[in-house]
Each structure stands twice: as structure tokens, then as C-alpha cells.
Amino acid sequence: MRDYGHMAERLFHMDERTWERHASPWSVWTRIASLPLLLGAIWSHTWLRVWALVPIGLVILWLWLNPRVFRAPARTDTWSAKATFGERVWLNRAQVPIPAHHVRVANILTSVSAAGFALALAGAILNDLLMAISGGLTAWFAKMWFCDRMVWLYDDMKDKHPPYAAWLRGGQKEVQ
């Protein structure tokens, strides 16, 4: 069974080159900052009516363009690059198994983030500020924790599967 991550990867057409570009800190941090923009665009339906589809569409277009518009970073030994590498490892777990403790926590964090996003989405649609903000913060913090967990996953797996180690470049070689 395919999960949300695989569906998103397919929807966003994430090929090798796109993943390399997405490892850019500019890509990671501007994408992370996109949630308030999306919620604001949805919220705008109250006064823009059907025209709210324009800002919503622009944010969705930005989410698709984001991993494509920034250059691949020269260094990939950063937290943001490793977070994207961990996501790739996570998505590849059917081919290269990962430790069970990562699976458990990643599934929990994905569920919490999805629930927070659903609450935020409902809040934006209903123009309920408390619901939108609390759901948005829940989704955002769970996603950030998930990203941090992906850094840990990548660090655990890069020496167990040589293609993963090849993604790392720049900086000092890590001392084991």
C-alpha cells in the first residue's frame, strides 16, 4: 500500500534532479514557511469568494515549483539537506528496510501533522482563528519533528546503503 509520502512524491514529480534541488536550504525553509500562506489563501474565501482560488492556486503552484527553482546546494551536510535525504530514505523503506523505531515515530508524527492540517484547513474554511492557528501550529511542529527525525534516519542509514552516503557532500567527514 502506498502512503501519503509516495502520493505526494508522485504528484510533485520528484525525480533525482528535483530531489537534489530540494536539498537546498532555500527550498526547505521557504516550503516550510508556506503553510501560513496556504491557510491565509483559503481563509480569503470570505471576502474574495470564488477569486480565492487565485491565491490558493498560486500557493499550490509555489509548492510544486519550490523544489525546482533553487539550485542544488554545494554542501549537503546541513540539517535541511539531511532532512530531505531522510525523506527519500523513508520513501524507499520498502526496498531498503529501516529500523522499526524510526517507522513508529515517523508514522505517529505524520498522523499528528495530518490531523493538525485537517484542523487548520477546517479553521481556514470556517474562518475560525483558534482552530486555524492551533491546527496549523500542530501540523507545523509535527512536520518539523518529522524532519528532524528524518535527519536521524538518514544519519543511521547512510552507512548501511552506499547510494545514500553518495548524497552527502561538503564539510568535514564525520568521525564515527
Score class of each variant (00 low, 15 high):
Pro163Asp: 07
Ile60Leu: 03
Gly116Val: 02
Ala52Trp: 05
Leu109Met: 12
Val50Asn: 10
Ala166Asp: 12
Ala8Val: 12
Pro97Gln: 02
Phe141Thr: 09
Ala83Gly: 05
Ala83Lys: 00
Leu65Cys: 03
Ala33Gln: 08
Asp128Lys: 13
Trp43Ile: 03
Asp3Gln: 12
Met14Gln: 05
Leu11Val: 08
Gly171Asp: 05
Ile60Lys: 00
Asp3Met: 10
Asp155Gln: 09
Leu129Thr: 13
Trp29Gln: 07
Ser80Trp: 06
Asp77Arg: 03
Thr78Val: 01
Ile125Tyr: 08
Leu119Gly: 04
Val69Ala: 04
Leu91Phe: 06
Val50Gln: 14
Trp152His: 13
Leu61Gln: 08
Gly136Gln: 06
Val105Pro: 13
Ala72Phe: 08
Gln95Pro: 10
Gly86Pro: 00
Phe117Tyr: 09
His161Pro: 06
Asp128Glu: 12
Arg88Asn: 02
Trp90Asp: 01
Thr138Pro: 07
Tyr154Phe: 11
Asp155Lys: 04
Phe146Pro: 07
Leu65Pro: 03
Ala83Cys: 04
Pro162Ala: 02
Val103His: 09
Val69Phe: 07
Gly40Gln: 03
Leu130His: 14
Ile60Val: 11
Arg93Asn: 03
Pro99Glu: 01
Pro163Ala: 06
Ile98Glu: 00
Leu121Phe: 09
Ala132Arg: 05
Arg2Trp: 15
Ala72Ser: 10
Trp47Ala: 10
Arg17His: 15
Ala106His: 10
Val28Met: 06
Ala165Lys: 11
Ser80Val: 02
Trp90Phe: 03
Trp64Leu: 11
Trp79Gln: 06
Phe70His: 06
Leu137Asp: 05
Val105Phe: 15
Arg49Trp: 09
Ala41Thr: 05
Phe12Cys: 11
Gly57Phe: 01
Gln176Val: 14
Leu121His: 02
Pro73Thr: 00
Gly170Tyr: 08
Gly40Pro: 02
Val54Ser: 06
Ser134Ile: 09
Asp148Ser: 14
Leu63Pro: 01
Asn92Lys: 12
Leu39Arg: 00
Thr84Val: 14
Thr46Tyr: 11
Leu153Met: 03
Leu119Thr: 08
Met131Cys: 14
Gly171Gln: 02
Pro162Gly: 05
Ile32Val: 13
Ala8Gly: 09
Asp77Ala: 01
Gly136Tyr: 01
Arg49Gly: 13
Trp47Leu: 10
Trp145Thr: 15
Pro36Phe: 00
Thr76Cys: 04
Arg2Leu: 15
Val96Asp: 07
Arg49Ala: 14
Leu61Asp: 09
His101Trp: 14
Phe85Ser: 01
Leu37Val: 04
Trp167Thr: 07
Gly116Ala: 06
Tyr164Ala: 04
Ala52Thr: 06
Met131Trp: 13
Lys158Asn: 03
Ala23Val: 04
Ile32Ala: 15
Met150Ile: 05
His45Gln: 11
Ala74Cys: 15
Leu121Glu: 05
Gly170Val: 09
Leu91Gln: 04
His13Ile: 08
Val96Ser: 02
Trp43Leu: 10
Ala124Leu: 03
Glu20Asp: 13
Ala23Trp: 00
Trp29Val: 08
Leu58Gln: 10
Thr84Lys: 12
Trp51Phe: 14
His22Lys: 04
His6Leu: 15
Tyr164Pro: 00
Lys82Val: 00
Ser80Gln: 07
Ala8Lys: 11
Phe117Cys: 06
Gly40Leu: 04
Ser80Leu: 07
Trp140Leu: 14
Leu58Gly: 06
Arg21Asp: 00
Thr84Met: 12
Arg104Trp: 07
Trp26Asn: 11
Arg10Tyr: 13
Thr138Cys: 12
Arg2Thr: 12
Val96Phe: 07
Arg88Glu: 07
Trp29Tyr: 12
